[in-house]
Simulated assay, not measured.
Amino acid sequence: MRIVLTGAGGFLGWHTRLRLAALTDHEVIPVTRENWHDLDYLVSGADAVIHLAAVNRAESSSDVEQGNIRIGNEVARAVSAASRPLRVVMSGTIQVERDNAYGRGKLAAQRALSEATTTAGGHFVDVCLPNLFGEHGLPAYNSFVATFVHATIAGENPRVNDNPVELLHVQDAAQSLIDGLDCGNERIRPNGIQTGVVKVWKLLQEFHRSYVPTGEIPDLSSKFRINLFNTYRASLFPDHYPISLTPHSDPRGSFVETVRCRGGEGQSSFSTTVPGITRGEHYHLIKIERFAVIQGTARISLRKMFHEEIIDFDVSGDQPVAIDMPVGWVHNITNTGHDVLLTQFWSHELFRPEAPDTFTEPVQPLPKEPSQ
């Protein structure tokens, strides 16, 4: 299926594109501000549209409302201009039930897009989302969780008013949007976890107290804790890394603790790598994975999916360090020395062959095909 994905450069857009790349064979046409002017042309050749582009914040509430109406109308016109049935999935919001600018704008956009889709004989699906959180959210824009993460890392103590809140991890939201591509429903309402604002703040403080000083992995005994920890550590990358490990030496040699975890599953393994060979070349959607070189020298390289910049860490067993791989970042390790490289790997969950959460992709991006 050829899918036009609007808002592909945003928070939800990046995660949806990542999940589509990992779990489907669909061809995804990303639409951002840079190529928005090609929207009509791109939709004309599509089988489906996932519409995520929206205005979350602006100088005034009127700008938020009118901005979402304008964007919705432009996508609706592109769907109408295609003059054929399309599957259209839109990221909706529980805010449509409330009298605020964002909810009113999204509701008007939803109605315009639904009418354009059904008039052309297509199928429209509204994916009604609660509050989202996850890796690479922007503070003071995407989520209060992103704002809390930023404050935690910066050592700030914002005033926190406790309220009940429903939180859905952005990868779960992305899966609901993908489900909309072949479901018979006109509305999908994924359920998040019911929690409190203060509880989120306290969990982030708990993570920060253990992880930053020593690299200790916190209690990961629930899916929510795993998702929140991944959200937190994504904002630490790359400035916080590598994590220094402390050798304890005596005449017999040295002992180095590479992983300390307070709860949840965990699996350790090691590999030997001959000089010049590269391992890895993959990314994960949720797995927390730590690399620690025990012997030899190596270069650990990472690249955020759909970006070109590569971040390199040159590491050595003589000065042991650990690097934790952020989800959605392709990574590899290359033996850059003249001797066999010994590397220890740790992940927060047991390896399951039926669901390995490992997706092949080279760190060095493939050259782009020339335009036809």
Rank of each mutant, 00 (worst) to 15 (best):
V125D: 08
V125E: 08
C128S: 13
C128I: 14
P130S: 09
N131C: 09
N131A: 14
L132V: 09
L132D: 02
F133S: 07
G134L: 11
G134W: 13
G134K: 04
E135G: 06
H136L: 14
G137D: 14
G137C: 11
L138Y: 11
L138M: 14
P139E: 08
P139W: 10
A140P: 06
N142E: 14
S143I: 02
F144Y: 13
F144V: 01
V145T: 14
A146L: 10
T147C: 12
F148W: 04
A151R: 07
A151I: 09
A151K: 06
T152R: 09
I153T: 12
A154H: 11
A154Y: 04
G155I: 04
G155V: 04
E156Y: 08
N157L: 12
R159H: 14
V160Q: 03
N161T: 13
D162P: 14
N163M: 10
N163A: 13
P164D: 09
E166P: 01
E166R: 02
L167Y: 02
L168K: 12
L168N: 06
L168I: 11
H169S: 08
H169V: 10
H169T: 05
H169D: 15
H169L: 05
V170K: 05
Q171T: 05
Q171E: 01
D172S: 06
A174M: 06
A174E: 05
A174P: 05
Q175V: 01
S176F: 07
L177R: 00
L177T: 00
D179S: 01
L181H: 00
L181Q: 00
L181Y: 00
D182G: 04
D182I: 00
C183L: 08
G184C: 06
E186G: 12
E186L: 03
E186F: 06
